[in-house]
Design a protein around this nucleic acid. Sequence first.
DNA 1: TAAGTTAATTCCC
DNA 2: TTAGGGAATTAACTTA
Length: 364
Amino acid sequence: MGARRVVLLADLDYFYSQAEELRNPSMRGKPVVVCVYSGRTEESGVVATANYEARKYGVRSGMPIALAKKRLSGADPVFLPVDFPYYKEVSERVIGIMKEYSDQLEQVGLDEAYLDVSNRVEDFAEAEQLAKEIKRRVLQEAGLKLTIGVGPNKIIAKMASDAAKPDGLMVIRPENVEEFISPLPVDKIPGVGKKTAERLERMGIKTIKDLAQFDPVRLVDEFGESLGAHLHAASRGEDEDPVRGRAEAGSMSRIITLKENTKDLKAVLPKVDEICEEIHERAVREGVLFRTIGIIAITSDLGIKTRTKSLPAPTDDLGTLKRESSELVKKFLQSTDKEIRRIGVHISDFTRREKGQRTLSGYI
DNA sequence: TAAGTTAATTCCC
DNA sequence: TTAGGGAATTAACTTA
Ligand SMILES: Nc1ncnc2c1ncn2[C@@H]1O[C@H](COP(=O)(O)OP(=O)(O)OP(=O)(O)O)[C@@H](O)[C@H]1O
Ligand SMILES: [Mg+2]
């Protein structure tokens, strides 16, 4: 029961930029920056990712495009818009190769996958050889570099990969877990983001060593049963979370940036209608019915607000989608004084539309 | 009081 | 100071 595991985390290096270099190899050696343009002004938007040539100049994911341009002036950079369908295609080729190495594969986003190889290897030395083979094959057959972390669980595999990138391989055996994690800052623990790291810092906890020495009862007190226990276990390098395949896509969303911030419902509703039409078209094309409708509003202070409503029955009716989305936006604007910067619509709680299935359409 | 449902948030890529 | 996807937690409410 709960036999010791060998878990591997494979993470493609600077993925979107690397995919672009694959499509156009003449860009290799130059800084390549993949951008999400918002359309508000000519250059508004952020960097999705940048290759390591660009990172040398301090360019990072999430950085405004204008700042990246400034940092790269004179460095002969290439700026490209994101192309999700292409990255998805490239990703599928890579995941296909990895699936040959374990039937326990958990994909995370487009560029990462956990593999539980406990049944395929005898020890960590063998896992290291397997990881080398995966790296070799992904490079030969898909043309991409990646980093692999190997450990006794998902958290350690992930932290090993983070420490080894780019084009790296790091194996952390159980007996080396403590020395590996102790000196690292707490925000290197997967699941500890900005908010949690700030709270820990206020409690005087900066490194994982600090966290390991802290009274677990007080952690649970502070952070609740789940996060408190997770923090304590992680500080000791322990993590039982299994590698498991993820379900098919269960939601669709589309969010846009408005030309100008507004609190005027009449200015937002036409956009909401357009977004609903796009999402509806995709839902019908993919044959899904949705039972939950939501809106996402990013306010001028960049706060993220969501409002959702569950329907009495699944539907794919456009009128219902538009009515409910509009209603949620209207109620949101009535509940606040803030201006809206970005607006989006979200559908979820899918069931597949079976042949000839009918729905309660257009209910009120 | 327990169990299910709904809505909002936090965190991940 | 972006987009689109996912998992998990938690609080509040409903129902049995
Ligand atoms: N803030 C972001 N906004 C939009 N897309 C992002 C953002 N951060 C990461 N991504 C996209 O997700 C992909 C995977 O993210 P990840 O954190 O693995 O970084 P990466 O670009 O692959 O770099 P590396 O893994 O070498 O550090 C990236 O290629 C990237 O383009
Ligand atoms: Mg990556």
